[in-house]
Computed example of a mutant assay.
Amino acid sequence: MKIIRSRSFTPSRAWGALEIANMNGITTRLHWTDQPYKWHVNDGEEVFAVLDGRVEMRYREDGIERSTVLETGDVFYASVGTEHVAHPLGAARVLVVETQGSV
Rank of each mutant, 00 (worst) to 15 (best):
V41F: 09
G16R: 03
D43A: 10
Y37M: 13
E46T: 01
K38F: 13
R54V: 00
P36T: 09
M57Q: 08
V55M: 11
F9V: 04
F9Y: 08
D62L: 02
V47T: 04
S12L: 14
L30C: 09
H40W: 11
P11L: 04
I20R: 14
S12G: 12
D62P: 00
V50E: 07
E56D: 08
R54I: 00
E19Q: 15
E61G: 06
R54K: 14
Q35Y: 06
Y59A: 09
R13Y: 02
R54E: 11
T33W: 00
R7E: 14
E61H: 01
D43C: 08
P11S: 03
G63A: 07
W15E: 05
D43T: 13
E45V: 10
F9S: 02
A14V: 01
N24M: 12
I26G: 01
S8E: 14
E56R: 15
G16A: 10
V50A: 02
P11A: 04
R54D: 01
N22E: 08
L18C: 01
N24T: 06
R54H: 06
E45M: 07
M23V: 15
R60D: 06
R58L: 07
L51I: 08
D43G: 15
W32G: 04
S8G: 02
K38Y: 11
M23Y: 07
L30V: 08
R60A: 12
G63V: 04
A49L: 15
V41N: 09
R7G: 15
G16M: 03
T28I: 08
R54S: 06
N42E: 15
N22P: 04
W39R: 14
Q35R: 15
D34G: 10
R7N: 15
E56G: 05
A21K: 15
N42F: 09
A49I: 12
S12M: 11
L18Y: 01
M57E: 05
D43I: 13
F48E: 04
F48V: 05
W32N: 06
G16W: 00
L18E: 03
Y37N: 12
V50Y: 06
Y59T: 05
N24Y: 06
W39Y: 12
K38P: 00
I26M: 12
R58I: 00
G53N: 04
F9W: 00
L30M: 11
N42G: 13
I26Q: 10
A14M: 05
W39H: 11
R7K: 15
A17D: 14
K38S: 06
V55R: 10
D43M: 11
G53C: 03
G25W: 08
E45G: 00
T27H: 00
E56T: 11
S8Y: 03
D34T: 02
T28D: 01
T10E: 13
D62E: 13
S8C: 01
N22A: 05
L30P: 03
V47N: 03
A49E: 12
P11G: 12
E45C: 00
